[in-house]
Design a binder for these strands. Structure first.
Lengths: 278, 278
DNA sequence: TAGGATTCGATCAGATCCGATCAGAAACGA
DNA sequence: TCGTTTCTGATCGGATCTGATCGAATCCTA
């Protein structure tokens, strides 16, 4: 068979993807999301997982990312997980807890934001998902102490992101300490979107860490209204340090698996409820 | 003998395409699409793939494009390809330029750090690699305006990371603006590790962005000694805004491909040189 | 802590692409 | 008109890239 008569497919605008181009897009994905699973990468670049795995190996050798089971992260972008300080945990573990509920909560909470708003966003996996929903808004001003929230909005062209200063708390990639609180003094925004580790009708929002609690209080103090994002695994749970008392909570966004009695009691205390259905 | 020096103008306006003309069209294709496959080029200029391959080899030798398997791209134009879902041209593409040199520079620069130091680290791909090297140090205090540097050190148990506040500049994931500069006031550390887009003996370090330049100056002002990290692609390059004049630079860490004359002139001006060999 | 499910690494096969060499065509000078 | 030079196209062996598969390692759940 003469190779000359082969049908040279005149595919105009052919979208060949060179190896270097594919690696470039992988890096873009990494910087856009911080951490990406291997499967998602393979789908995004339209290549097999084997090829992506090879690319990740090459990129890791160049120091451009860190590989892990199931995907890769930006160097140092690992979110440490509860009770696992011994070795590097997988980044997705925390986000996998009630992942569907958190996504639904994030989406519902995003509807409380309007173009032109100035808002504060606290640290947490739910607030990170929430921030990702905000890229579509225009002329938004966001103040946060979470590196992951900031990164989620880094590529949004018309969202201004202001990070508080402060000491980095590596486990949650958030800024804490007096510098963080000081940078919030004199700030006034419309709404604060805060997460936490527990929420009860009696004690409000609580977290197990004092530094985090202190910053969360400062974040809340900068807003006219406070919106709490908490999935059902946190409702009715009380942890060590109270951050926001119930009577200061204006809105609660949660999911429909939250215990009814706690929600009723919160509603009695003038908290407006928004229940997402995953 | 170069074919261009002969005067074959007698046959002007032929239907056949001269070699130079064909190469010009190839460059136009490149600029129009950013990346083109060899097959598409061959079809567009009505020549065989062998000929196009020859042309690409010549054009690459002139530095006008980069060849890859299956085609070619414009130098550094990978990130702006049509269909790139998130555009982040600057950072991701910078990271791949002279990656090996940057890694070697980062490693050598890390030897200038000692346990117990307090240092400042600026934003940049090289400084990010540098930060990754610092996880092994104990009792280190690091101040930075780069989210990537902060993340690189997030899991280092005995490194305290302080992030300046400020407005997020998404393209480089660094904090800029008056808040960032203000948070550095009153700070005093031993050494500042700064990168930049260009370094000449006459004008020192420079970057193309004024906000970034302003923050870099503030970072440098907080340190007793200034260490500049710059691979050879930046040496001898001058960009818009001067950040650090030559006489304030105490150390330069670069690689062995840097032009000798510039290094000599820098050494004459009391800059201590550290040359890494990748 | 043990079992099941993913995921990783290594190897192999198919396809494509590249480089080198050789042959044919066009242009120039004598 | 002829020979030389330069350019273009074709072919073939080698190299590279991609995808699939299977045993081994790792992770998650009960």
């Amino acid at each position: 068979m003469a190779p000359g008569d082969d049908s040279r497919t005149a595919t105009e605008g052919r979208r060949t993807m060179f190896a270097a181009e594919r690696r470039q897009r992988i890096l873009e994905l990494m910087h856009a999301n911080g951490a990406v699973s291997l499967r998602d990468i393979a789908q995004a670049v339209q290549s097999s997982e084997v090829t992506v795995r090879r690319d990740l190996r090459i990129l890791e050798a160049d120091g451009l990312l860190n590989r892990h089971h199931g995907g890769a992260t930006l160097p140092g972008a690992l979110a440490t997980l509860p009770g696992a300080l011994s070795r590097e945990p997988t980044y997705a573990q925390k986000a996998q807890v009630a992942a569907a509920e958190k996504a639904a909560i994030a989406e519902l909470a995003a509807s409380l934001v309007e173009d032109g708003d100035a808002i504060v966003i606290g640290a947490g996996t739910t607030t990170q998902l929430f921030a990702q929903q905000l890229t579509r808004y225009a002329e938004l001003a966001v103040v946060t102490n979470s590196l992951l929230v900031a990164q989620a909005l880094a590529n949004a062209p018309r969202v201004e992101v202001v990070l508080t200063g402060g000491t980095l708390r590596g486990a949650i990639l958030a800024l804490v300490g007096s510098a963080a609180e000081r940078s919030l003094a004199g700030l006034r925004v419309r709404r604060a979107f805060i997460s936490g580790n527990g929420l009860t009708a009696e004690r409000g929002v609580s977290t197990p860490n004092m530094q985090v609690a202190s910053v969360d209080r400062a974040l809340a103090a900068a807003a006219e209204e406070i919106v709490v994002l908490a999935d059902h695994t946190k409702i009715g749970v009380d942890t060590m340090v109270q951050t926001i008392p119930t009577d200061e909570i204006d809105h609660l966004v949660t999911d429909d698996a939250a215990p009814r009695d706690v929600l009723d009691e919160l509603a009695n205390r003038a908290v407006r409820l928004h229940v997402a259905r995953p």
